[in-house]
Design a protein around this nucleic acid. Structure first.
Lengths: 210, 210
DNA sequence: CCGGAGTCTGAGCGGGCGCTTAGACCGGTG
DNA sequence: CACCGGTCTAAGCGCCCGCTCAGACTCCGG
C-alpha cells in the first residue's frame, strides 16, 4: 500500500482521499486503487481489496453497495481533482504560453506522482456502469475544454501557430494522460522532471515563440 | 466482427492475420482480438471468444492450449508488425525529418486503422505470463530503438533541436501508442488524417527546421 | 443498566469461470 | 471397404467469483 506517493515539490496536494469517511471506507478505497492499478478492475477480486485493507470480504459491502461503486467513487474524485488542476492553470495569470506550460506541467506531475490513481481514472472507464460513465464523460469534456481554451487564446493572441486547435488539444491531452501508463517510481525521471520536459515539448508542439 | 478494418491509403497491409492457420484458428484469434479490445482480456470469457467465432467453447482448446496463449500470439504478431513498420521508416531514404515524419505517420496510421489490434497489443501487456512478457518487452525495446535512432541522427545532422533524446523518444512513442486508446471509427478523423496531423506535431516537438 | 444503531466476521449461496473428456463426424489412404 | 488422424460438440468438473446473512462486538444516549 503506497501512502507516501505524493509530489515532493510542495503544496500541490494535501491528503489525497481525505474526503472519504469513515476511515474504514477510506482504507478500502485506497486498497482498491492500488489493486485496480496493479491488476486492472476485472482481474481484482473483492477478497483482494478487503485483504489489503485488513478486513474480511463482507466488510466491503457495509461501505459500498458493489465493487463497481468503489470504481465509480475513485473515478469521480480523480476526475474532479484533474479538472481542478487544469482549471487553476487555465484561469491563472500570464501569457497563453505560460499558462499552457503551467497546465501541462502540473497535469503531468499529478499523473506521475499519483500514477496509481491516474491509471485507474484514465484506463478503467469502460468498466463503469452506464450511469457513472455518463457523469464521468461530462467531467472529461470540461477537462478537455480547459486546455482547448488556453490554445484558442494563444492562437488569437498570435502566440501560437496551430492549424487544428481541436487536434492539438487532443494530442496534448493524450500525451499527458499516457504518462500514467508508462511512469515508474524507480524509473529515470521524477514527476517534476517529466512535468518540465513535457511542458517544453508541448510549447514546441503549438509553435510558441521562444 | 470487423474484417474490413484496413487502411484506405493502399498497400500498407495485405491481410492482417494471414500467417495464422488453419482457418478455424484464425477465426478464433480474430474473435479474441475483437473481444479483448472491447472488454479487456480479463473480462472476456472463452465462451464469448468461441461464440464470436461460431464454435463451441471446447473447440478453442484444440487450437490453443490456454486463453493466455491466444493473447500471447496476438501480442507477438502485433509487436512484430509494429516493429516492421518503424524499421522500414527508419531505414528509408531522406533526411531525418522526412524519416521521422514517415515513421510517425505510418505508425499512427496503423494504430488508428488497426485500433482494435493495437489496443490489445499496447494495453494488455500485464495480462501476459512471465515468459511471453519477457519476449514482448525485448521486442518493445527494438521498437523504441528505431525512433531513437532517427532522432539521434537528426540531432547529429543539426536538423533537430532536442535537449533530451531519450525523453523525446519516450514522449513521441507515448503519443503514437495512445492513439489506440482514443481513436474511434465514427470520430472526427480518418487514420490518414491523424497520421498527417501527428507527423506535423512531432516535427514541431523536435524543433525541426521547416 | 438497557437497547439500538453502526461495524465487523465466518460461513456459505448461486452462478459462471477456464478447461477436460468421451464420443461423433469427416476426408483421405491402404 | 476399414481405419485413422484431425476437428468438432455436449456435457460437465472443480474452483473461485460477487455478494448475502445471521450473529457478535462496541459505542452511546437515556
Amino acid at each position: 500500500m503506497s501512502t507516501a506517493e505524493e509530489t515532493t515539490s510542495g503544496g500541490e496536494q494535501q491528503q489525497p482521499w481525505a474526503e472519504v469517511t469513515p476511515e474504514a471506507a477510506r482504507r478500502l478505497l485506497v486498497a482498491a486503487v492500488d489493486a485496480f492499478a496493479e491488476r486492472g478492475y476485472h482481474a481484482t477480486t473483492t477478497r483482494d481489496i478487503a485483504g489489503r485493507a485488513g478486513m474480511s470480504p463482507a466488510a466491503l459491502y457495509i461501505h459500498y453497495k458493489t465493487k463497481e461503486e468503489l470504481l465509480a467513487r475513485i473515478s469521480r474524485i480523480g476526475h474532479e481533482k484533474a479538472l481542478a488542476i487544469l482549471r487553476t492553470a487555465a484561469e491563472g495569470e500570464g501569457t497563453a504560453a505560460e499558462r499552457l506550460a503551467g497546465a501541462v506541467g502540473s497535469f503531468v506531475r499529478w499523473h506521475a506522482a499519483q500514477h496509481t490513481t491516474a491509471r485507474v481514472v484514465q484506463y478503467e472507464l469502460e468498466a463503469l456502469g452506464e450511469d457513472s460513465r455518463d457523469e464521468i464523460v461530462a467531467l472529461r469534456k470540461q477537462v478537455d475544454a480547459q486546455v482547448r481554451r488556453i490554445i484558442q487564446e494563444g492562437v488569437a493572441a498570435g502566440e501560437f501557430d496551430v492549424p487544428d486547435v481541436q487536434g492539438a488539444t487532443l494530442a496534448i491531452m493524450s500525451l499527458c494522460i499516457d504518462v500514467a501508463r508508462w511512469f515508474r517510481v524507480d524509473g529515470r525521471w521524477t514527476p517534476d522532471e517529466v512535468g518540465a520536459l513535457y511542458a517544453d515539448l508541448v510549447l514546441n508542439m503549438v509553435g510558441a515563440k521562444r
